[in-house]
């Protein structure tokens, strides 16, 4: 069950203060990196929502993010909707697609669930890659950013855009936390631990899973919309299964089922990539070894490890439950 321990609140506060201070003073490239972290954080947050709290380890969240990006670009460019309406439409559409996938895959578990979501992910990728309607592998350019001049903001300014993404991240976090505290969120956690019992209690399992997956998909769609706005160009590469795999790695590195951990994971992952790739072309191997080390250490990611150490010492918060060891 998700609760805001004191440690989690402190971490959130530190992350928020750090992001705002860094965002206010860094140069151009620092802002790009910060935006990258914010968008990745939204994506992994959405994945942790279903993987960490619902046992639904998905390999289609990259494709869902891509769906959001493509839907936004096409609604805004081809249908000529205003960017704000296109954003809402794209997030809603991605949520609907995700709910459908969640409903279809609801009966599968474990590796079968992973593979079923992968199948949908690959279908989406092939469709976008090979169809000229979506621009094929050339992608789509001229993706607009919303016009917020009414409230005095210019999103074409890099700093303003970074804060726009950070605000979206904060919103996504609040939505995710609220979902987990709701009855629906509790049902989802219950389903992960004992599906038979909850069914016996009269719960419609597939409906809970579909709704949860839909909400998670909508958040992933938001990440996609922002990714499209950031580069103002999108390509099928966004939807490749490796993007989903990478998101899963970030969730694991951060700490599955902690909601705060994946945010830390996104921060570490992006920094690691920029730092490691600066001095070796073999940064994949470094990330791979870190992943192996983290999992071998039996800790629940970097953040899970910190939580565990502190709760053992009894310094802060309550000991965390051994969540999702056998998801």
């Amino acid at each position: 069950m998700f609760r805001h321990t004191r440690l989690r609140l402190i971490t959130l506060a530190l992350l928020a203060i750090g992001a705002v201070l860094y965002g206010a003073f860094t140069g151009y490239f620092g802002l790009e990196v910060l935006t990258e972290i914010a968008i990745l954080a939204i994506l992994v947050l959405s994945l942790d929502l279903v993987a960490g709290f619902g046992g639904m380890v998905s390999l289609c969240h990259g494709a869902l993010m891509g769906t959001g990006a493509y839907a936004f670009a096409m609604l805004a460019s081809d249908l000529g909707l205003s960017p704000a309406a296109a954003m809402a439409g794209a997030i809603g559409l991605t949520g609907a697609v995700a709910a459908l996938i969640g409903a279809i895959c609801a009966r599968s578990h474990g590796i079968y669930f992973i593979m079923a979501t992968l199948a949908f992910s690959q279908m989406g990728y092939s469709l976008v890659f090979e169809s000229p309607w979506f621009g094929g592998d050339d992608g789509l350019s001229d993706v607009p950013r919303p016009d917020l001049s009414a409230i005095g903001l210019d999103l074409n300014d890099p700093r303003t855009f970074t804060f726009w993404c950070l605000a979206a991240l904060a919103l996504a976090y609040l939505v995710a936390a609220q979902v987990l505290r709701s009855g629906m969120g509790r049902s989802m956690v219950g389903l992960m631990h004992n599906e038979k019992r909850l069914r016996a209690l009269g719960l419609t399992a597939w409906r809970v899973k579909a709704v949860a997956f839909g909400i998670s998909g909508a958040i992933a769609g938001l990440a996609g919309v922002l990714a499209a706005q950031q580069t103002q160009y999108i390509s099928p590469g966004l939807m490749a299964w490796t993007v989903s795999g990478e998101a899963l790695v970030v969730v694991i590195l951060g700490g599955l089922g902690t909601l705060v951990g994946p945010l830390v994971g996104a921060l570490l992952f992006v920094m690691l990539r920029h730092e490691v790739s600066a001095f070796t072309p073999y940064w994949h191997a470094v990330v791979g070894m870190i992943l192996v080390a983290v999992v071998m250490s039996r800790a629940n990611g970097v953040y899970g490890w910190i939580e565990h150490r502190l709760s053992v010492r009894g310094a802060h918060g309550k000991p965390i439950e051994p969540e999702v060891e056998n998801a």
């Binding site: 592998d137 050339d138 992608g139 350019s141 001229d142 580069t231 103002q232 160009y233 390509s235 590469g237």
Partner: peptide, 9 residues
Amino acid sequence: SGVTGAIRD
């Protein structure tokens, strides 16, 4: 070619 298209504008 994808990178070319992406950075053109």
